[in-house]
Design a binder for these strands. Sequence first.
RNA 1: UCCGGGUUGGGGUAGUGGUUAUCCUUCAGCCUUGUGGAGGCUGAGACGCGGGUUCGAUUCUCGCACCCGGACCCA
Length: 433
Amino acid sequence: MYDRIKGFRDFYPGEMAARRATIDTLEDTARGYGFREIGTPALERAEMWTDKSGDDIVEELYSFEDQGGRHVTLTPELTPTVARMVVAKQQELSKPIKWFSTRPFWRYEQVQQGRQREFYQTNVDIFGSSEPEADAEILAWAADALTNLGLTDEHFEFRISHRDILGGVLETYDADVDIDDAIRAVDKSDKLSTAEYHDLLIGAGLTSEQAVEFDDLVAGGDLEAVRAFADTDRVDAAVDNLQHVLEAADDFGAREYCTISLETARGLDYYTGVVFECFDSAGEVSRSIFGGGRYDDLIESFGGQPTPAVGVAPGHATLALLCQRAGVWPDEEVTTDYYVLQIGDTRTEAARITRELRERGHVVETDVAGRSFGSQLNYADSINAETVVIAGEQDLANDEVTIKDMNSGDQMQVPVEEFPGEYERPTFADFDS
RNA sequence: UCCGGGUUGGGGUAGUGGUUAUCCUUCAGCCUUGUGGAGGCUGAGACGCGGGUUCGAUUCUCGCACCCGGACCCA
C-alpha cells in the first residue's frame, strides 16, 4: 500500500458527482455572462513568484529544477498566469477580456479545515474595464453562482470595501504611519481583542487617541463620515467608486448580498480598488469563503500596457463546507438510469436494448461480469438504478422483457419490440396502464 | 514551524504485558440461472511505522508518519 501525499485528496465517484454538479453550476453561470473558458499550465517559471515576493516564498511552493535547468513551480494561483497570457496577446484580444477556469493549484502549507495542499478554484476575471460595472459584474456572477447552488442571503454575505479608503484615511495622519502595517492590523482585527488591535495600530505609528478614533471610523462603516473625516481627493474618489459599484450591483441583483465592511483589507498584494470577501453568515465557517477585487496595476507590472482588471476566485473546499452546512450540498451518490439484467444466453438482445437506451442519452449498465441474477440485482441497487430491464431467457422466449421499477419494486412484462421502441425514456410507469 | 486531540480489518468499534484479538457493518461467493433494499452459510479483511523496556509489547515508553482541530501564513 502506498500512502496518499499529505494535503492531496482522492475523490471517489460519489464525492466526485457532488463536486462535478457544483463545478457545473459555477461554470454554467459564468458562461451565461459570456465568460470564456481558458486552459492554463500547471507549471510556470518560479521567477513569476520569486521576482515579486522574494525567495522566501519558495518555502510555500512546489518548485524544482527541471531536466533543462529551468527553475519551475506548480502554480499556487492563477493570476500571474492570466496576466502573462493577457500581456502576450495584448494587442489581438478584444476588450473587455472575460475569462474563467476551474483548476487545481498547489501550495506547500499547513493542512487545516478547508485548506489542502492541492486545492481547486474557479477563477473569474475581467480585464480592460475600470468601470464600476465590471466590479459589479464580478459580484453579480458570484452572487448568481452561489444562489444557483441553492444558497441564500441567509447563508452568505459579501463584505466589500475599497483599498484606497483605508490607505487614504491613514495617510491623513501626520505621524510616521506604516500604512501597510496598519492595514494588516485592520485585516486581523476580527481575531484580536480591542486592546491588541489598538496596540498594533499604535505599533504602526498612530497615537493612542488616533487608534481609537480610527477604529471607530472604520468599524462604523459610514462612507460619508469617512469622506468627511479624510477630506482628500483620494478618499473622495474611493468612496465615489465604491458607491458606484454598489449602485451597479443593485441593478445587477447583487446588492442585497453586499455589506460595506471597511475592515476587509484582503491582504496587501496586488489589489488596488474594490475588494471583497465572502463570509458564512452563520459564522460557522470562520475564515472567509473566498475573496476578490480589483487589481489595476498587475498587467503593467508584467510588462503589458496599463490594463485594469477585476476578478474573484472561489475555492471549492471552503465553498463545499458552506454548502454542506447550509444543507444544499448535492447527494454524494452515483445515479443510473437503467440496468439491463441478463440471464442465460441473452447477450445479443440485452446489448441491443442497452445500445438503444444509450443512444437516447441515458446512463445504462449491463452485466460484464457473468454474475447471477441475485448479484446483478444487488449491483443494480448499489448503483441506484432507477429501472432494471430484465432480459431473461424466459422473457425472451415470449418475446418480452420485464421492466422493474427499483424504487417500488413493481414490475411487469412488455413486448420486447416496444422496448425502448418509440419511447425516449421509458419507465415502469409508461407501461403501467 | 508551533499548540491540542487522535490512529485496532474498507467503515464503525470492544479489549488485553502472554497460546486462535471482540462485535456490527462492508465486500466477495453460495443457498438462488428468475428477483435487490429480508434471512442463512462460507470466505476476505486490522493492532500506523521505527527504536527502547521486557522472557514476551497491539497494550508501557520515546521518536516519526499520518488524520482532525487551531495558531502563524494566506499570493
